[in-house]
């Protein structure tokens, strides 16, 4: 069921304490800041958040972490020059970290959306990130068994949606959006523009609307070249 929603607050209102929330974005590109701010205002706690990073600066995911709403981060690259809110929580033992090689993160999310129960991959074989995991030698290479990452909710940012919920993205802001949209039970998308059904070339649709549940338009003018 697809809903077009007027405000970001209403869009995230159903997110419950203890939810697993996928948040799109690589650094700031593709990060749905307005939806994250609404999640912060909404007060949901004890969240498990799936994102490539663990927040930058004093906005978006970083604030959600600062305010103690995030119980656990599943990410590939938490430590950055401006990840001070995560750093403080981690050093204080107030946030759990599941560190995942970035390609495993992407493929585990993709697997969830594609109904795959797990897969073997050479990435991480022989490293501390494979400790405790099942391994096999396949095609002559050591490989590690990885499981899908499912989520209750995905918050993602796209450029445009049409009336059927089909999405197109912009440049490297696409990143995790398409795979998170498929992996979550409920996908909430913020877009800069909603066009009428038929207003997107079907050949160019990146995320088909079947993966999308809620769409909200936000007034974030993209600073384009």
């Amino acid at each position: 069921m697809l809903n077009f929603i007027d405000t970001v607050g209403e869009a995230v209102a159903g997110i419950k304490d203890g939810s697993t929330v996928m948040i799109g974005g690589f650094g700031n590109a593709g990060q749905p800041f307005e939806l994250i701010d609404a999640l912060l205002d909404g007060g949901a706690r004890e969240l498990t958040v799936v994102n490539n990073n663990a927040g930058q600066g004093d906005q978006g995911l970083a604030l959600l972490i600062k305010e103690g709403r995030v119980k656990k981060m599943i990410c590939s690259f938490p430590r950055q020059s401006d990840s001070w809110h995560f750093d403080a929580k981690y050093k204080a033992g107030e946030i759990e970290l599941e560190l995942v090689p970035q390609g495993n993160l992407a493929e585990r999310i993709r697997a969830a959306g594609a109904g795959i129960g797990g897969f073997f991959t050479p990435t991480g074989y022989g490293t501390m990130l494979a400790e405790g995991k099942e391994t096999r030698i396949l095609d002559g290479r050591g490989q590690v068994f990885e499981t899908p990452i499912h989520a209750d909710v995905a918050l993602i940012k796209a450029l445009k949606a049409d009336g059927k919920g089909n999405l197109v993205y912009r440049k490297t802001a696409r990143n995790f959006g398409p795979i998170m949209a498929a992996a979550a039970k409920h996908t909430i998308v913020q877009v800069s523009e909603i066009v009428p059904t038929g207003g997107l070339d079907p050949e160019n649709v990146v995320t088909p609307g079947i993966y999308v549940n809620s769409i909200v338009r936000v007034n974030n003018s993209v600073k384009a070249a």
Partner: peptide, 30 residues
């Protein structure tokens, strides 16, 4: 003026695209 917040590299530095460039999602990229 070339700086575009939607066009960055792995180090999160703004970059440019060359003719013939392509974009794809993270699972395809990996």
């Amino acid at each position: 003026d070339e700086i575009d917040e939607d066009l960055i590299n792995a180090g999160k530095i703004p970059v440019t695209e060359l003719p013939g460039a392509s974009y794809f999602h993270h699972a395809d990229s990996f």
